[in-house]
Design a protein around this nucleic acid. Structure first.
Lengths: 209, 209
DNA sequence: ACTTTATGATACACATTGTATCATTTCAAG
DNA sequence: CTTGAAATGATACAATGTGTATCATAAAGT
């Protein structure tokens, strides 16, 4: 007799599940994944991602050890799933606002504010930064494309993009650690004066796009 | 019959060994550590720090497995030793030049250029960034102290310091990946226009300290 | 040459990962 | 509310990696 599933059938469920069926998502599945996500966030902020064993994790989540593997093949996959979901959320928020940079930034920071620990956890696991960069790249590549002519000639465009991404993430990381935190609008101003304006040194167009 | 050493006697050798004795450093010791360092750099750049087992490492270094533990208690300690040595080197270079920022930056980049793989490796292992920050903090805290009055009032000084550190490290990381690489002088100009100048928006004093 | 000490090789206890299996509980659909 | 399907808990297991211990050998320094 074969095992019902193991490492294949169930694992891919719920990922981009908009194929018309939408199988109704068993409560037990979402419950288990929620518990695992919460436990990972807690433990990562407490001792760091690398210092968590799967037995620690399943114990904290209060689920059986083997149950973990019915949802994710390993620890990194769980982290990645959380990351992907978070990125999708952020992109969904930013997309309608690409033409209004200031409001987009404010909306992003407001969104971060709804799950601070989650994003702190994602930023703490640094090897994920490259993936997180995708979300920022989404905005900054647009920025670069629109403002390429204004970037100082001695600075390569790729470097400018990377700088915008990295510096913004760095600011977010700092911001999430603060208590109390500056408002999204204040952060928008800081990002503008510290990161964006230096790329506009030649053109002095005021406050528009 | 006791074991000669194990995890205690030898491990601390050569760390800050300026206590008057300077026990002459057996060739075999420095050879082993050099082989381990080179192997770690290679393997980390190839597959990432987390994906290296100590058996991989000792095999690549061509030394016995148990020999590793006679020098470092674990993988992280080897990485840390390399990091500490590198930081000490950089601080030694920067210290005499604190009053000449432009020359200091150029000297730092020139130093990085002598062991690019080593610094790439250190920057690739992101959880070490906090420690690396110490080296940059050394310079930027000075910068902040000297220029505190010129930092825009809406930007906290700690955030300014963190931004300078993070953005500079990010630029270095980008620079080390390039081929060919811009000159240290060019990087100095980029750092100035992209990172430093925005902190001087109010005061327009020209090129001096 | 001679003493000291680092090394190589190997065996071992221990922890962690991922797989396999089965009885039990929970779900959702009729 | 029943009933079949599916997820869970518990447990055992092989495989791998870590760090310790030990001894014979090789290489260093004096």
């Amino acid at each position: 007799m074969m095992t019902q599933y193991m490492r294949n059938p169930l694992v891919n469920l719920e990922l981009t599940s908009h194929n018309g069926s939408m199988p109704k998502a068993d409560r037990r599945i979402s419950r288990t994944r929620r518990l695992l996500t919460d436990a990972l966030i807690q433990l990562t902020l407490e001792r760091g991602f690398e210092n968590i064993s799967l037995r620690d994790l399943t114990e904290r989540a209060d689920i059986g050890y083997a149950t973990f593997f019915r949802h994710y093949p390993d620890k990194e996959s769980l982290l990645n799933a959380i990351l992907e979901e978070s990125i999708a959320t952020l992109i969904g928020i930013a997309t309608p606002l690409v033409t209004q940079p200031k409001q987009m930034i404010a909306a992003m920071f407001t969104a971060l504010l709804e799950h601070p620990e989650r994003y702190q956890m994602l930023l703490k696991t640094r090897h994920i930064n490259q993936l997180l960069s995708r979300a920022m790249l989404f905005g900054s590549s647009l920025f670069i494309a629109q403002n390429a002519a204004q970037i100082p000639s001695n600075i390569p465009a790729e470097l400018a993009a990377r700088h915008v991404i990295g510096a913004t993430i760095n600011l977010i990381e700092w911001w999430l650690e603060q208590t109390p935190r500056a408002s999204p609008e204040q952060m928008g101003e800081i990002i503008n004066s510290l990161i964006m304006q230096p790329l506009h040194q030649s053109a002095a167009n005021a406050s528009g796009v």
